[in-house]
Amino acid sequence: MKEHNLIFLSASIILIALIDSAGALLGFWSIEGQERNIILTIESMVLFALFINSLMIKRWVFRNTKNSAIIKIAWLSFLALCFCLLGDVTNFNLPETFYRYESVIKHDYLVDSIYFFLPGYTLLLLAGIRAIELKSKDQRFIRYPVIAGCVVGMISMVMMHLPNTGLFITIGTGIYAMLIGVVGFTGFAFILSCGGLKATKNELLVGAGFILAAFADAIIGNFWIYGNQGEGFYPLVRYFNWMVYITSQCLVIHLPHLLVINFKYSHDRKQQD
């Protein structure tokens, strides 16, 4: 597939997610109404399109570079998305079960999705760190985001945690809060490694994808899992989260795509010099 088609598909996926979320927020349809199966079908198609686009990006990368580091990043990015998609399906809560682990957290099925999102975002984090290493040898771009992400994640966990929450949910969400915090700060670090304000528009967008991923999960933790004293501000928070989450994934899957473009540009400039 041609390069511009990969970008067009991501933009189309974002647009569909925006329409889906905006329509639900405005009351045109609801995940809790008769349209539930229709909405889940549409959202499943969005996730499938995201998978296809990520797969095509990986194949495009393989055809356009022999750089082993970028190829490894392409694999990490693709596998990261695959795990996250499984987490998305879990969050659909197809059996519509609640309070499975205890009587405090209603939407505790979200904790089950951590089994997929934890390895998924770990792989994405590794891809981001490797990309930063290709840009800069300064280890501060890696060390500081890890420290800041863990600290912010722990603070966030303490602030949103509810008394009497079970140990399983507490440990699961606590570990995940630190991981997703690191992912978000890695987005800032990637932009800084690309020159900060001098970074290209594409570099800013990919970095923003990492940041939005952390923002999307912060929404889940604060307003879907622990929000409203464990009842969650559902379904409104789901609609808003879907819009932010899909946008983040559509951006981060282009990380290896961006690296190939930058590598080619740098190589061409060296030849001209």
Results as ranks from 00 to 15, higher is better:
residue 2 K to P: 14
residue 2 K to L: 04
residue 3 E to H: 06
residue 4 H to R: 06
residue 6 L to N: 01
residue 9 L to T: 07
residue 11 A to I: 15
residue 12 S to L: 12
residue 16 I to Q: 01
residue 19 I to E: 03
residue 20 D to V: 13
residue 20 D to N: 10
residue 20 D to T: 10
residue 20 D to Q: 08
residue 21 S to H: 01
residue 22 A to F: 14
residue 23 G to R: 02
residue 24 A to I: 04
residue 29 W to I: 13
residue 30 S to K: 07
residue 32 E to M: 11
residue 33 G to P: 10
residue 34 Q to K: 14
residue 39 I to P: 05
residue 39 I to D: 08
residue 40 L to I: 13
residue 41 T to A: 12
residue 43 E to V: 11
residue 47 L to W: 04
residue 49 A to Q: 01
residue 50 L to I: 10
residue 51 F to R: 00
residue 56 M to C: 10
residue 56 M to L: 15
residue 57 I to V: 15
residue 72 K to I: 03
residue 76 L to G: 01
residue 78 F to P: 04
residue 83 F to D: 04
residue 83 F to S: 07
residue 86 L to Y: 09
residue 93 N to E: 10
residue 95 P to V: 14
residue 95 P to T: 11
residue 99 Y to N: 11
residue 105 I to H: 07
residue 107 H to L: 13
residue 107 H to V: 07
residue 108 D to V: 11
residue 109 Y to H: 14
residue 110 L to H: 10
residue 110 L to Q: 08
residue 115 Y to T: 11
residue 123 L to G: 02
residue 123 L to Y: 02
residue 134 L to I: 15
residue 137 K to Y: 03
residue 137 K to G: 15
residue 142 I to K: 02
residue 145 P to N: 04
residue 146 V to K: 06
residue 148 A to C: 14
residue 150 C to W: 12
residue 154 M to R: 00
residue 158 V to Y: 14
residue 161 H to G: 05
residue 162 L to P: 06
residue 165 T to N: 03
residue 171 I to A: 11
residue 171 I to R: 01
residue 177 A to Q: 11
residue 181 G to Q: 04
residue 182 V to K: 00
residue 183 V to N: 04
residue 185 F to Q: 09
residue 185 F to E: 10
residue 189 A to C: 12
residue 190 F to A: 05
residue 190 F to Q: 03
residue 192 L to K: 11
residue 192 L to S: 13
residue 192 L to I: 13
residue 193 S to V: 06
residue 194 C to L: 11
residue 196 G to K: 01
residue 205 L to R: 05
residue 208 A to C: 12
residue 210 F to Q: 03
residue 210 F to C: 06
residue 212 L to E: 05
residue 213 A to V: 07
residue 221 G to M: 13
residue 225 I to S: 05
residue 226 Y to I: 13
residue 226 Y to L: 11
residue 232 G to H: 06
residue 237 V to T: 15
residue 239 Y to L: 03
residue 241 N to L: 11
residue 243 M to C: 13
residue 244 V to M: 02
residue 252 V to I: 15
residue 253 I to E: 05
residue 253 I to D: 02
residue 254 H to N: 09
residue 254 H to V: 06
residue 262 N to D: 15
residue 262 N to G: 14
residue 265 Y to H: 10
residue 267 H to S: 14
residue 272 Q to A: 15
residue 272 Q to C: 03
